[in-house]
Simulated assay, not measured.
Amino acid sequence: MIKIHHLEDSRSQRILWLLEELGLDYEVIRYERDPETRLAPDALRAIHPLGKSPILEDGEVIVAETGAIIEYVIDTHGTGQLKPAAGTPEQRAWTYWMHYAEGSAMPPLLMKLVFQMLPQNVNGLMRPLVKAVTSRAQSSFIDPRVKEHIEFWDSSLAPTGWFAGSEFTAADIIMSFPLEAAANRSIAGQYANISGFLTRIHERPAYKRALERGGPYAYA
């Protein structure tokens, strides 16, 4: 049986959703974050040297990284589901979004999160200075980059409501986290196509079942 090493409040929730969409049997091995650092526990390093989630075990096969896991599951167990036909424009779009989600979409969102948290982690005397510096960095560099990506998502969803053609695919699963994270921080809610996308995925039975298996899920 497939095993998923799943960290609370993390991107690994998408893998549970994928497995639910495909109707596959799997076991969830859940890990809690350190309450102070919010980092993954060292126990994950016993499975993979970097100690990051998600990690998939399928017999002797161990796969890390969300995009790699999605491609492995679809190629191995997908029976042609959730991926457009080879050689089509939709399949090329699918491949693009599979790489874009972690390679381009998440870095500016993570930068914003880090810069928002920095003032909270310094002493009181330094806090006003650090807050001034981080606020300037966000307004002059990070926020414009985030806005570019959000507008790109919204325009990309406009034709069909999905990222890779007219049907729901795994591209929508992997893209869900950056959109949910941006919406949760109130920086994407005013975009109609993004809001519609989030409403549709949240209504999917497999999405709801994955939340039941994975536990409470905070997008930030």
Score class of each variant (00 low, 15 high):
Ala183Leu: 05
Ala183Gly: 15
Asn184His: 15
Arg185Asn: 03
Arg185Trp: 07
Ser186Glu: 14
Ser186Val: 12
Ser186Tyr: 06
Ile187Val: 14
Ala188Met: 09
Ala188Tyr: 11
Gly189Asp: 05
Gly189Trp: 12
Tyr191Val: 09
Ala192Val: 06
Ala192Asp: 13
Asn193Ala: 04
Ile194Ala: 03
Ile194Lys: 10
Ile194Gly: 14
Ile194Glu: 05
Ile194Val: 14
Ser195Arg: 07
Ser195Tyr: 00
Gly196Leu: 02
Gly196Ser: 08
Gly196Arg: 08
Gly196Lys: 01
Gly196Ile: 05
Gly196Asp: 07
Phe197Cys: 04
Thr199Ile: 12
Arg200Asp: 02
Ile201Glu: 04
His202Arg: 15
His202Phe: 04
His202Trp: 10
Glu203Asp: 14
Arg204Val: 09
Arg204Cys: 04
Pro205Phe: 00
Pro205Lys: 00
Pro205Tyr: 00
Pro205Gln: 00
Ala206His: 11
Ala206Asn: 03
Ala206Phe: 02
Ala206Gln: 02
Tyr207Trp: 13
Tyr207Ala: 03
Arg209Gly: 04
Ala210Pro: 02
Ala210Ile: 09
Leu211Tyr: 11
Leu211Arg: 09
Arg213Met: 00
Arg213Ser: 03
Gly214Gln: 02
Gly215Pro: 01
Gly215Arg: 00
Gly215Gln: 02
Pro216Phe: 04
Pro216Cys: 02
Tyr217Ile: 06
Tyr217Val: 06
Tyr217Gly: 01
Tyr219Val: 08
Tyr219Asn: 13
